[in-house]
Amino acid sequence: MSIKKQIAKRIAELIIILIILSFLTFLLMYLAPGDPAEKRLSSQGVAITKEVLEAEQERMGLLRPFMVRYGEWFTGILHGDWGVSFKDDLPVAPKLISGLKNTTILALSSLILSLIVSIPLGIASAVKKNSVLDHIVRLLSFIGNALPNFLISVLLMYFLCIVFNLFPVVADGSIQGLCLPALSLAIPMAGRFTRQIRTEIMEQLDQEYVTGLRTRGVSEKDILIHNVFHNASGHIFTIIALQIGTLMGGSVVIETIFRWPGIGKLVMDSINARDYPTIMGFVLIMGTIYVVINFISDVLYHVLDPRV
């Protein structure tokens, strides 16, 4: 099969997966316990009678058949209409977009931060296998990997904000406020990346071609950068793409802790308010991004290592 055909097939699969994702998301909200209409009325302080409740359910469109509601919701999404928030009647899409923007800033900075640390450390500890450096790097990455990010953020807050007074406690979207949340997300991720990159590089260094290049007098630097890292990069992209899922989950926690105005904080607020359209939008957006990123990383892998 030609590459183009394969990509076309994968894109078709991708679309089917996304449709299933949207269906499951909707189903989940449909099956959810608790009545949003009731929640909404009680939060507005309205005395709930049967008539009032039914009228509100009617108004919110909760009484029509499941498939009709799903169809409407889905076609709406295709047209950019993600529904109206149960909480404040504002359209969901702009909220999600502005949250997504902030989350992207946070996620990208933590991703870059962790890669800046873990790529050199992973390579160095693979090259100097069993050296003191390798042992230290392995210990640090092992500990980093074992730290839940909520814990890191609480500890960072305590030591950097309170004990040493270096950072503001609340991250209101400023650059300074970005530091701690990004660091909290980056630390466990750097631990995982370092471990995985070290393994990848070691595997490449064991390949016969490395000896072959050495006996042809190619310098160790050229071997490492242009051959070993080059060959490992396909795998490294896959590793990164798979971490995006953990990063998304982590950003919900971190944004809530630091009040970073991202999509993760938005979804926690929405969960507390039973604001289903916003939660659905969140799951759909995150799922789509994850699926698309993994698709891209697959294609990239194929480009970088055409043997597969």
Binding site: E208, Y209, L213, H226, H230, N231, D305
Partner: peptide, 12 residues
Amino acid sequence: PQDPGASFNPIR
């Protein structure tokens, strides 16, 4: 080498 074919980087 013994297996000269394996002495090049296979994907460059």
